[in-house]
Protein backbone atom coordinates (compact mmCIF):
# COMPACT_ATOMS: atom_id res chain seq x y z
CA UNK A 1 0.00 0.00 0.00
CA UNK A 2 1.59 3.25 -1.14
CA UNK A 3 0.45 6.77 -0.56
CA UNK A 4 1.70 9.94 -2.21
CA UNK A 5 4.79 11.78 -1.11
CA UNK A 6 2.87 14.73 0.41
CA UNK A 7 0.74 12.24 2.35
CA UNK A 8 3.79 10.56 3.76
CA UNK A 9 5.35 13.89 4.64
CA UNK A 10 2.24 15.06 6.43
CA UNK A 11 1.96 11.74 8.21
CA UNK A 12 5.53 11.94 9.41
CA UNK A 13 5.09 15.50 10.56
CA UNK A 14 1.82 14.84 12.35
CA UNK A 15 3.27 11.80 14.07
CA UNK A 16 5.48 14.16 16.03
CA UNK A 17 2.50 16.22 17.22
CA UNK A 18 0.95 13.69 19.57
CA UNK A 19 2.00 11.53 22.49
CA UNK A 20 0.01 8.58 21.04
CA UNK A 21 -0.06 7.08 17.53
CA UNK A 22 -3.79 6.74 17.76
CA UNK A 23 -4.31 10.48 17.59
CA UNK A 24 -3.23 10.45 13.96
CA UNK A 25 -6.18 8.31 13.06
CA UNK A 26 -9.00 10.66 12.11
CA UNK A 27 -7.10 13.17 9.96
CA UNK A 28 -5.04 10.40 8.38
CA UNK A 29 -8.14 8.48 7.38
CA UNK A 30 -9.55 11.55 5.69
CA UNK A 31 -6.38 12.25 3.75
CA UNK A 32 -6.07 8.60 2.77
CA UNK A 33 -9.65 8.64 1.56
CA UNK A 34 -8.93 11.73 -0.50
CA UNK A 35 -6.13 9.86 -2.26
CA UNK A 36 -7.74 6.47 -2.76
CA UNK A 37 -11.33 7.63 -3.14
CA UNK A 38 -12.61 5.53 -0.25
CA UNK A 39 -11.34 3.55 2.69
CA UNK A 40 -10.71 0.19 1.08
CA UNK A 41 -9.86 -2.90 3.11
CA UNK A 42 -6.28 -2.36 2.11
CA UNK A 43 -6.27 1.22 3.39
CA UNK A 44 -7.90 0.15 6.64
CA UNK A 45 -5.30 -2.55 7.19
CA UNK A 46 -2.44 -0.19 6.39
CA UNK A 47 -3.64 2.59 8.66
CA UNK A 48 -4.42 0.16 11.46
CA UNK A 49 -0.83 -1.02 11.22
CA UNK A 50 0.51 2.51 11.23
CA UNK A 51 -1.44 3.73 14.23
CA UNK A 52 -1.06 0.44 16.11
CA UNK A 53 -4.73 -0.43 16.34
CA UNK A 54 -6.78 -3.45 15.31
CA UNK A 55 -8.76 -3.17 12.10
CA UNK A 56 -11.89 -3.45 14.23
CA UNK A 57 -10.94 -0.32 16.15
CA UNK A 58 -10.21 1.54 12.93
CA UNK A 59 -13.56 0.50 11.47
CA UNK A 60 -15.33 1.54 14.65
CA UNK A 61 -13.91 5.02 14.16
CA UNK A 62 -14.52 5.18 10.41
CA UNK A 63 -18.18 4.35 10.79
CA UNK A 64 -18.63 7.12 13.32
CA UNK A 65 -17.55 10.02 11.12
CA UNK A 66 -19.93 10.97 8.36
CA UNK A 67 -17.24 12.14 5.94
CA UNK A 68 -15.49 8.79 5.98
CA UNK A 69 -16.68 6.01 3.74
CA UNK A 70 -15.70 2.45 2.99
CA UNK A 71 -17.68 2.50 -0.26
CA UNK A 72 -16.33 3.92 -3.52
CA UNK A 73 -17.85 7.26 -4.51
CA UNK A 74 -17.85 9.47 -7.57
CA UNK A 75 -14.97 11.73 -8.43
CA UNK A 76 -17.04 14.67 -7.33
CA UNK A 77 -19.05 14.23 -4.21
CA UNK A 78 -21.89 16.76 -4.31
CA UNK A 79 -22.95 17.53 -0.77
CA UNK A 80 -26.12 19.53 -0.48
CA UNK A 81 -26.94 21.16 2.81
CA UNK A 82 -30.63 21.14 3.71
CA UNK A 83 -30.25 22.17 7.32
CA UNK A 84 -32.37 25.00 8.70
CA UNK A 85 -30.70 28.04 7.16
CA UNK A 86 -30.38 26.34 3.79
CA UNK A 87 -33.87 24.84 4.12
CA UNK A 88 -35.33 28.31 4.51
CA UNK A 89 -33.43 29.50 1.46
CA UNK A 90 -34.35 26.60 -0.83
CA UNK A 91 -31.78 23.91 -0.04
CA UNK A 92 -34.22 21.15 -0.84
CA UNK A 93 -34.85 22.58 -4.27
CA UNK A 94 -31.13 22.45 -4.86
CA UNK A 95 -31.09 18.83 -3.76
CA UNK A 96 -34.03 18.03 -6.05
CA UNK A 97 -32.25 19.72 -8.89
CA UNK A 98 -29.13 17.66 -8.30
CA UNK A 99 -31.15 14.46 -8.23
CA UNK A 100 -32.81 15.35 -11.46
CA UNK A 101 -29.70 16.56 -13.20
CA UNK A 102 -27.50 13.67 -12.09
CA UNK A 103 -30.23 11.05 -12.22
CA UNK A 104 -29.28 9.64 -8.85
CA UNK A 105 -30.47 9.77 -5.29
CA UNK A 106 -28.47 10.37 -2.17
CA UNK A 107 -25.60 7.97 -1.46
CA UNK A 108 -25.62 6.93 -5.12
CA UNK A 109 -23.00 7.41 -7.83
CA UNK A 110 -23.56 8.22 -11.50
CA UNK A 111 -22.75 5.33 -13.85
CA UNK A 112 -19.78 7.24 -15.29
CA UNK A 113 -18.34 7.44 -11.80
CA UNK A 114 -18.16 11.21 -11.96
CA UNK A 115 -20.68 12.26 -9.34
CA UNK A 116 -22.12 11.07 -6.10
CA UNK A 117 -24.82 12.89 -4.23
CA UNK A 118 -25.25 13.38 -0.54
CA UNK A 119 -27.61 15.34 1.63
CA UNK A 120 -25.49 16.76 4.41
CA UNK A 121 -25.86 18.69 7.61
CA UNK A 122 -24.92 22.30 8.23
CA UNK A 123 -21.57 23.09 6.64
CA UNK A 124 -21.11 26.57 8.05
CA UNK A 125 -22.45 28.56 5.13
CA UNK A 126 -25.68 29.72 6.75
CA UNK A 127 -25.28 33.38 5.89
CA UNK A 128 -24.66 32.49 2.26
CA UNK A 129 -27.35 29.85 1.92
CA UNK A 130 -28.25 27.71 0.19
CA UNK A 131 -24.89 26.09 -0.12
CA UNK A 132 -23.28 23.01 -1.59
CA UNK A 133 -19.85 21.52 -1.17
CA UNK A 134 -18.34 19.59 -4.05
CA UNK A 135 -15.56 17.64 -2.41
CA UNK A 136 -14.02 20.44 -0.37
CA UNK A 137 -15.12 23.41 -2.50
CA UNK A 138 -17.94 25.60 -1.26
CA UNK A 139 -20.63 26.91 -3.64
CA UNK A 140 -22.94 29.43 -2.04
CA UNK A 141 -25.96 31.66 -2.75
CA UNK A 142 -27.22 28.93 -5.02
CA UNK A 143 -30.26 28.76 -7.23
CA UNK A 144 -31.27 25.71 -9.24
CA UNK A 145 -29.93 27.43 -12.35
CA UNK A 146 -26.59 28.13 -10.71
CA UNK A 147 -26.47 24.55 -9.53
CA UNK A 148 -26.89 23.36 -13.12
CA UNK A 149 -23.99 25.51 -14.22
CA UNK A 150 -21.79 24.26 -11.43
CA UNK A 151 -22.52 20.64 -12.24
CA UNK A 152 -21.84 21.35 -15.90
CA UNK A 153 -18.49 22.83 -15.02
CA UNK A 154 -17.54 19.75 -13.03
CA UNK A 155 -18.71 17.46 -15.80
CA UNK A 156 -16.50 19.37 -18.19
CA UNK A 157 -13.57 19.33 -15.80
CA UNK A 158 -13.98 15.63 -15.08
CA UNK A 159 -14.35 14.49 -18.65
CA UNK A 160 -11.55 16.72 -19.94
CA UNK A 161 -9.09 15.31 -17.48
CA UNK A 162 -10.11 11.85 -18.41
CA UNK A 163 -9.42 12.43 -22.08
Amino acid sequence: MRFSEPFEQRFQEMASHYPTRRSLLVPTLLYAQDEVGFLSDEVVAEIARRVELTELEVRNVISYYSMLTTQPRGKYNVQVCTNIACLLMGGEEILDRCRLKLGIREKETTPDGLFSLEEVECMGACCWAPAVQVNYDFHEHLTPQKMDQILDQYTKKGTERRR
Binding site: M14, H17, Y18, S23, V26, P27, L29, L30, Y64, Y65, S66, M67, L68, E121
Partner: peptide
Protein backbone atom coordinates in the same frame (compact mmCIF):
# COMPACT_ATOMS: atom_id res chain seq x y z
CA UNK B 1 4.92 26.59 23.29
CA UNK B 2 3.84 24.38 20.41
CA UNK B 3 0.66 24.72 18.43
CA UNK B 4 -0.62 22.01 16.12
CA UNK B 5 -3.70 21.81 13.96
CA UNK B 6 -5.98 18.80 13.96
CA UNK B 7 -8.75 17.88 11.54
CA UNK B 8 -12.13 16.25 12.10
CA UNK B 9 -14.07 14.09 9.69
CA UNK B 10 -17.71 15.01 10.05
CA UNK B 11 -19.45 14.77 13.40
CA UNK B 12 -21.49 17.44 15.15
Amino acid sequence: FDVYWHGGAGAY
